[in-house]
Amino acid sequence: MNKIKEIYEYRLMVYSLVKRDLRGKYKGSVLGFMWTFVNPLLQLLVYNMVFSIIMKAGVEKFYLYLFVGLIPWLFFSAAITGGSTCIIAQKDLIKKIRFPREIIPISFVTSQFVNMLLSFIVVILVSLVSGVHLTVGGILCLPVIMLVEYLMALGIALISSSLTVYFRDLEHILAILAMAWLYATPICYPEEMVPEKYLSIYRLNPVTPIVNAYRDVLYWGRTPDLTTLLLAVGIGLVTIFAGVLIFGRLQRRFAEEL
């Protein structure tokens, strides 16, 4: 509880770091902040060409199917891979200044999250243009799904960032893991393509319910299934709880290890 209060007192630091990160990102490029929108559109174009022309997945409006899953995934994957190095990247701050260390992963994940939110403007537009009938219930569910994904990503970033300080290989291991994870999640293909006998293992993937929930709203145009949503909320809470505990334990020696 004390921790939460302390982090709340440092909220301006989160805001400043996120702002600094977003401002710095496209500095010097011609399109500048427009890249936040152009980048997902171009990615969509590439994936669409690959999967509708070369590797046909047999799904109607595949570009949308893919897009709705991919944008949340890119956020999640950035939180895992980039999150693992965020503490090391800020070692000068950690060694010299006292502040709740959680601020660093929180700022990192939040800035990725803001990026995702901006991309979602494009996602929703594409979804509307494609003729998906968005339901009120579905739209109301979106912030909940996003929040759950945020908590999960933050939980994982808390764990990976603190572990990487002690064990630097994790950075590279996580990069591979993130790639494998993408294919273990129904993003580039529908879940139905997974052979029956692997399905029980496949279903253990905690990201799947989240992706499915997004897809319910933005692809199928329906309110997400309550069990899917509850499962996602549960997973999100467990991850964040584990993340806070592990991080709290490991952060004590950060200043010495860095």
């Binding site: 007192e9 440092y10 909220r11 301006l12 630091m13 805001y15 400043s16 770091l17 600094r20 701050l93 200044i97 502040f99």
Partner: peptide, 10 residues
């Protein structure tokens, strides 16, 4: 603002 926020100022 950034620097002062790191010192914990609102």
């Amino acid at each position: 603002y950034i620097n002062a926020s790191i010192f914990g100022l609102t």
